[in-house]
């Protein structure tokens, strides 16, 4: 089993000097490591720093990178930090995600002045590449550090690139934070992808309750935004929006919007819409819309 047979140090840090030895005044019967006694087929295994460096330095496949970093959760490897930090801007989304995950679990080398977190904030604020700024925004969300919320809110309001603004909105959803109202501001963005990202993110923020701003989006020019807005109203159980949602269910040109609207009407619990839903169940051109209208009547 890996835990008991690692030859290389798990403690290192290529340039580190660590004072640690299996002697001194330690309890003689103390287990040699935490989580001892877990069967081998069930136990977490831990990667060595050398292995980490070899994987990260050799153009490895995303699934190998993911496995390596996930199982390096508790591996102290300061020389790995720059290698992992570079993955925050990798073309592969999974690499970016797991890189931020690993970095945020480090006690050292990430959150100090000039270190990775600060660098990520700086990248979001001023990198000339929109792609890098968007990746930085995503990373800030994945760091799960609430301190990044103001920077993301600023990006939502002022970044010139819609991709970055959308990434910043998504990152707020990941942080479970509305950015002091920034998400609601993003609902009015000129770019439909930003609006869509913001509404999706709002669905993940447990304190988001801005029904009024959400309801305005049922008239959005983008069908995707209308659909997402309806789903958000559904999640919020926004019963005051029954009339607007019913209108979508009956008349929207997009079948997915009508379908989502029917589902939301079932959630709202207003039985006055049953006749309308029954009519939709009998007459909509789309089978799946008819299905959802029927199911909604059952829910009511």
């Amino acid at each position: 089993m890996r835990l008991s047979n690692l030859a290389a140090s798990l403690l290192g840090v290529l340039s580190a000097t660590i004072v640690f030895a299996a002697a001194g005044d330690a309890n003689a019967s103390q287990p040699t490591r935490p989580y001892a006694g877990i069967p081998g087929d069930q136990a977490e295994f831990v990667e060595t720093p050398d292995y980490m460096v070899s994987v990260l330095s050799s153009g490895s496949a995303p699934t190998l990178i993911w496995q390596t970093l996930e199982h390096s959760e508790r591996t102290e490897c300061s020389s790995c930090i720059p290698l992992v930090a570079a993955l925050l801007y990798d073309a592969n989304a999974k690499n970016r995600e797991i890189a931020a995950w690993w970095l945020r679990r480090r006690m050292f080398g990430v959150y100090g002045p000039g270190e990775v977190y600060q660098q990520t904030l700086n990248t979001l604020a001023s990198d000339p590449s929109a792609v890098r700024r968007a990746d930085a925004a995503s990373a800030l969300g994945e760091f799960l550090e609430i301190a990044g919320s103001p920077a993301l809110a600023t990006a939502i309001k002022s970044d010139t690139d819609p991709g970055t603004r959308a990434a910043a909105a998504s990152a707020l959803g990941r942080l479970n934070d509305d950015g002091a109202g920034a998400l609601s501001v993003a609902f009015g963005d000129t770019d439909p992808n930003v609006r869509l990202a913001a509404v999706q993110a709002a669905g993940r923020v447990n304190s988001f309750v801005d029904v009024v701003t959400t309801a305005k989006l049922v008239g959005d020019s983008s069908a995707l935004v209308r659909r997402q807005a309806v789903m958000l109203l559904d999640e919020m159980n926004a019963t005051d929006s029954v009339a607007a949602v019913l209108a979508l269910a009956q008349k929207d040109s997009d079948s997915e919007v009508r379908l989502s609207a029917c589902h939301a009407l079932g959630t709202f619990g207003d039985s006055s819409v049953v006749p309308a839903l029954t009519a939709i169940a009998n007459s909509d051109a789309n089978q799946q819309v008819r299905d959802q209208a029927h199911i909604a009547t059952l829910r009511l």
Binding site: L3, S4, N5, L6, A7, A8, S9, L10, L11, G12, T17, I18, V19, F20, A21, A22, A23, G24, D25, A26, N27, Q30, P31, T32, R33, P34, Y35, A36, V46, T48, R74, T75, E76, M107
Partner: peptide
């Protein structure tokens, strides 16, 4: 932190100087 560092082989490549901290606190134990 000693337990965190030791989640692996404590007899690996280590330079020892000064006094050694035991695992003062072990998660779940």
């Amino acid at each position: 932190y000693p337990a965190s560092l030791s989640m692996g082989d404590p007899t690996g490549k280590i330079t020892t100087t000064g006094k050694v901290p035991p695992m003062w606190g072990i998660p779940e134990d």
